[in-house]
Amino acid sequence: METEESNGKVKVYTIASLGWFAFENNIFTKTSGSGAIPTVITFAKNEKGEYALLTYEEPQDGAYYVASLKKMFPRMLQARVLDAQSEYANLAQQQEAQAAAYLKGIGREAQVSAAHVEKELADIDVQAKNKLFAELTKDDEFLNNCPYWLGTREQIEDGVRYIYETSQSKTKDGYHRITFRKLTEDHRVVKEQSYKIVGSEPVLE
């Protein structure tokens, strides 16, 4: 938005937003982050043109929000930062552009989305679904890493990228089966667990 430079210090007035992206169903999706946050950042600038962070300030929460925001920002910027969420669409586009640049840097092509992407959920008994995706995952790191939807998500572990997959099929005797798998990038199976859904019970096969 604006910058001020004086006595070797640079103050930046901005509206910031943080986004964490990950691969879900082969889409590079924003999985968590923040909204549009008015922020004032102060840097020290040395003779070589190098910057070092001095202060990072966000407005206070609740009843103190407006007063602290007005104290942080000059009058000419206050109307804009008081309506900071109107900037979010532009910030989301910037996040997508940065995410696309990251993909290019690692030599990968994929759709990028900062917006929510709909996912298909398992079509099984509700109680069985809750046990499988809410209760059993509490004490099982492998299950917890697998998607709660039918599809895939990727995770880097010790510098190695793995694909976690959840799928639904039918057993030979007609029961629903939910299968969880951990795969390498070239789709070699590292670990697999399948549950046969018998009524409201997921039964490990």
Rank of each mutant, 00 (worst) to 15 (best):
A122W: 06
A89C: 02
N7P: 00
R108Q: 15
D186H: 04
K196L: 14
I197T: 05
V81D: 03
E96W: 06
Y164Q: 03
V189A: 02
V81E: 03
K11Y: 04
S113M: 05
A67E: 14
N90T: 14
D61Q: 14
Q111C: 00
A114S: 15
D139R: 11
E47F: 09
Y164N: 01
G199E: 08
Y162P: 01
V126F: 12
G199A: 07
F21W: 05
G159K: 09
E58C: 07
L121P: 00
F21V: 04
E4T: 10
C146A: 14
V160L: 10
P59V: 02
M1I: 11
V12N: 03
D83S: 13
I41L: 07
S86N: 13
Q98G: 10
Q85V: 08
K48V: 05
E120D: 11
E154H: 04
E157L: 13
L82I: 11
H187P: 02
S68M: 07
S86F: 06
A115F: 09
I124N: 10
R75K: 15
D61Y: 11
I37C: 07
N7G: 05
A99V: 03
L53E: 12
Q155K: 15
F133R: 03
T152D: 04
A97I: 11
G151P: 04
A115G: 09
E87I: 05
Y51M: 13
S113E: 06
M72T: 07
M72P: 05
V189S: 02
L121V: 10
F23H: 04
Q155E: 15
D123R: 07
V189W: 01
G151M: 06
T3S: 13
K191S: 08
V12W: 00
K48R: 13
I27A: 03
W20S: 12
E201V: 10
A92H: 05
T55M: 00
G19S: 12
L82G: 07
Q155L: 15
T3V: 11
K131S: 14
I163C: 01
T152A: 02
D139I: 04
V198C: 00
F180G: 00
F28V: 03
L150M: 11
R177M: 12
Y51F: 15
V160E: 14
W149M: 09
S200T: 10
Q94N: 13
K48D: 13
G35L: 08
Y64V: 00
L132K: 04
Y164I: 06
K104A: 15
Y164E: 02
Y102N: 09
E5C: 06
Q98L: 14
G105F: 09
E118H: 10
V126Y: 06
L82K: 06
E96K: 11
K30V: 04
Y148L: 11
G33K: 05
L69H: 05
L53P: 01
C146I: 05
F21S: 00
D123G: 02
A100M: 11
T3E: 11
K71M: 12
K129I: 00
Y51L: 15
P38N: 07
A63C: 00
E185R: 05
V160M: 11
Y13N: 04
G174T: 07
L77Y: 08
L69I: 08
